[in-house]
Amino acid sequence: MEIWILITIAAAFVQNIRSGLQKHLREQMGTAGATFVRFGFGVPFAMAFLGFALLATDSELPVIESDFWGWIIVAALAQIGAQALLIMLFTMRNFAVGSAYIRVEPVLAAIFGFVLLFETPTLPLVTAVFVSVVGVMMITMAHAHVGIWSLASAVTKREAQVGLASAAMFGLAAVSFRGASLSLGGPNFLVQGGVTLCIAITLQAAIMASWIAIKDPADFKRIAIKWKTSLMVGFVGALASFGWFTAMTLEQAAAVKAVAQIEMLFAFATSYFVFKERMNKREIIGCLLIVCGVLVLALMS
């Protein structure tokens, strides 16, 4: 199994932990505050990861060219925009329909990769993306009245459009982060991923801090009260992002995003073994399809 697949699976596992912690924080300090801690408290850890990469590989910092700044600004803003659309989706009536469309992110990442980076998807990649996306959509719609094959008729609904827009922004962010990392030209995937992470997370922290300062300065006090949990979110968030960026330096963003769907399996494992919750037939089939998608990439890449 190639190293980028192992890195992606590890990043997905860590992100599952971060999502749980952020959900808890969101109830304590609101969406903006919970989003900020992911970036703001992650900056020192990102710096530490980069320092480790430099020491472990005995490398020097790469020279940053103008192309890098173009990619990183687009990526940082796209990711924030995608998150804002996702939050908007939470408030909509038919959340399940919108959520299902978010899961097509690997497909859109493949399209953006082809248009922006001139990367041609291979047959194993197309197969893996299709299989994993269908699997995740089946899980997402497992308890909804609308069926997996009737989603096409729901594309005109506002929640579906918001979900697609969020997926598109996430896909654009992923490809742009890959473009930024590749533009560094070396010295290796660990350092390139670390540099990309440090600059991106610092930029995003500054943007979110400015937003909170303008919209709700009291959020800073609530963040200070929950600093221990916030610190943990910052650590696991930066660790997951370091994994994503290094993996996307090695492989197309669409492939990384396809393997990253395995995060759903970690969530279901927690649900089944910790909370003793049962899975229905559609959820089981969806999980098996995700595993098949990952195996296609692992065995045919």
Rank of each mutant, 00 (worst) to 15 (best):
A240D: 07
M141H: 07
G185H: 05
R38Q: 12
E251M: 11
E65R: 11
V155A: 14
Q261W: 03
A267V: 14
I80S: 02
L77G: 00
E27Q: 12
V175L: 06
H24R: 12
E60M: 12
A75M: 06
G113W: 03
S210T: 15
T140N: 07
I73T: 15
R222C: 03
T120V: 14
V43M: 06
W71M: 06
A152F: 13
M169P: 07
F52E: 08
A205T: 11
L86F: 14
V131T: 12
K215S: 15
T156K: 14
L231A: 15
E119N: 08
H24Y: 10
A96Q: 11
D216C: 06
I111T: 10
K281E: 14
V291H: 04
S166P: 11
F36H: 09
S271I: 06
L295V: 15
L6N: 05
A12V: 10
M92G: 03
T246Q: 07
F41E: 04
Q204C: 11
I212M: 06
R103C: 00
K281M: 11
R26T: 14
E2P: 15
I72F: 02
G135C: 08
R18N: 14
A154P: 00
F266L: 05
N16K: 08
V134H: 01
M138I: 13
K257Y: 12
L172C: 10
N94M: 07
A165Q: 07
F275K: 00
L265R: 02
G179V: 09
G20K: 00
V259D: 01
L21K: 01
F68E: 04
T91H: 10
V131K: 03
M92A: 00
Q79V: 10
